[in-house]
Design a protein around this nucleic acid. Structure first.
Lengths: 211, 211, 211, 211
DNA sequence: GATGAATGAGTCTTCATTCAT
DNA sequence: CATGAATGAAGACTCATTCAT
């Protein structure tokens, strides 16, 4: 049952690239692509520079592989969102909560966004891939629920039934955490509650009763 | 009437640093701090490397000066927001529109946000300065209007009366434009309209009438 | 029996720093600290600039290491001077001859003196280290023999029994060779003979006999 | 009677090069030729770099001119030594004292020696000029007195009657002061007394009386 | 596979020198 | 004369990449 040293050489070999990618993630997050030294990535896992080059031919390839590495888990989460039940409001609420948990609060998703912003001009495909795999699914699923809710008469047919607007607080929170890390602690539950409250009610005092 | 070569030396001297800072802005925006070559900044305005160093002792100093350079105009805009008139809803609407025009749609403000995200770990003070000079004023003014509106009975005393949430679509739009530039053209007026509609009404069909 | 390429990697690695330090010595001697180019040091041993920096982080560190490198052998020689035999005059004579052979005629000791004079203001510790490790031992051992000789009645108790004065011709010769190299060939044996003759007899005609 | 501002423009003009040379002396002394910046020399007298180049075409020319500048006064002193009176011992004593006062204790002569040692390989003529104008006259005059003293039966015809040896303590003192400046204060009068005592008597106890 | 010595292209920075004002 | 903005050649230092062991 002992886990340590139990790894066969084949397992070891399969593990190495993942170790490297994890270390690369940390270094690239901390310093960005240009300012990250391959040697620092190597140091992080106790190997030498040369070892990195055994697995990845260039620093750019390593970066791209790292991006792919941290992008993978996300797909699962979005798929999971398929089978939501209940009214449209309930489905929207559930979906947004899922997005908070799976995206905004997931460090990898967050840092991926940082890479898109800071390295997007060097790695053009980053932008398209991120949009296609993260943003677009998020928006289209949101928009789908909104449209269905409108058709069902549950939501107003209004300019506010716009996915970009509805998910904005989620992206905004990601950015805030990207910038401030743990230094500016936002009250997360109040934030989410405020978001949902706004979505479903707006801030104005209901006029209907009095009129 | 000829403008060229008409500048006195004193004028030239006063102009040069601004030229440099503008060129630096463009290069740093395009490549980030580390990947920007001082020589490229110089080339952009037709001088040589050495000239840059006549005005700025190091690349880091140049970067910091550039940040200060692009941060200045913002202060005016926020001050301008002081004298808004009308109901609280009108004041909030006006303030948000002002923020769209002055911040989200201002290229410098937008790119400043990029620097905060991509170079914040290298230039720590960037984060604090940006928060203190841009984010915090934006949030506190918004919160003030919200609080007053609640006290005046114009807004619901609700979790949605939360500045972070209310301004999120503005920041989210900035980020979107930062990432996609002109490639993903969002319908700006629909976006703003959707934002304001959400803020003041939410998306739910009013229940009072039907009940 | 072939010597070349016969070195193991470990031997190479142990040798390289010494090669570099020897080459650095030659270049620094020829041009001084500031005017020496790291690349020239590298060229001298057929490697590239980068290799130097594998072993020494900065030019200053290389210089300091070079100084330590050439300073080491001296310690042995001074220790050797401990077991001198004979009358005090004989011991003084032997010690001075030892100093001529081990210091004045040793190229490294000589050039070390040049570095002290020319780079002392940049490398303050050079001065103190040189004094503590070369000059002071030389002077204190000389003074010890002089003092003992005086107590033994072998030397006059006079102002001339002053180590600074007694060893001056040795230092003066070093300086001369530093300046003129091989261009002004001083008759070394006449010089040494003159020095010892002066020390033990002065230049005046003995008065006692004639009076 | 006011000295200040009384200078005509012509006098001002004549003064400027001397100011520059004096400032250059201080900077070159402190940092050596290579590490001295022309701008620092200019700063020292409150002018700008360009001004230096009005008077001296290159840094090397400035250095050479500075050497000539500080070498001038020395010639006078040596000439002064011509008319010494008294016995040969008295003349030698007077000459050595003159050398102490005029050379060893003259800052310019001392620093000139530093330049010879540290910049001699870059400015070859420095070595020859220094030897011809300082060292050789010192040695030849000393040797002349020694030779005449031997011929007059006043000095022993011995290996010690060697100018190199006799003046060595003077040069050695210069070197010591060059290295230690004011940090190692040698008792100058004891030093000179010791030197002269050695020269005229050696350190051995006179044997003549007892034998 | 892993190493780490070596490379060399690249970048920041310095500074002697020029020249229009 | 004096200035000081501008130059550009040079040099310290870095680091992605290679390759023999």
């Amino acid at each position: 049952m002992a886990k340590k040293t139990k790894l066969t050489r084949a397992e070891q070999k399969a593990l190495r690239p993942i170790q490297i990618l994890d270390a690369a993630f940390d270094e690239f997050v901390a310093h960005g692509f240009s300012a990250t030294r391959v040697e620092d990535i190597a140091d992080r896992i106790g190997v030498t520079k040369g070892t990195i080059y055994v697995y990845f031919p260039t620093k750019e390839d390593l970066f791209s592989a790292m991006i792919r590495h941290i992008s993978l888990p996300l797909e699962d989460l979005l798929r999971e969102a398929g089978g939501l039940q209940g009214s449209h409001a309930e489905r929207l609420r559930s979906f947004l909560l899922l997005a908070y948990g799976g995206i905004a609060q997931d460090r990898r998703s967050r840092e991926l966004l940082r890479f898109v912003i800071s390295e997007g001009s060097r790695f053009r495909q980053l932008i398209d891939a991120h949009f296609a795999e993260v943003i677009e699914p998020l928006l289209s699923r949101t928009q789908m629920i909104l449209d269905e809710g409108v058709m069902a008469g549950e939501f107003r047919k209004s300019p506010a039934a716009n996915a970009d607007i509805i998910v904005a607080p989620i992206l905004s929170l990601m950015m805030d955490q990207l910038i401030h890390g743990d230094r500016r602690i936002v009250d997360l539950s109040a934030y989410v509650e405020g978001h949902l409250d706004l979505v479903f009610s707006g801030i104005s005092v209901p006029k209907a009763l009095g009129d």
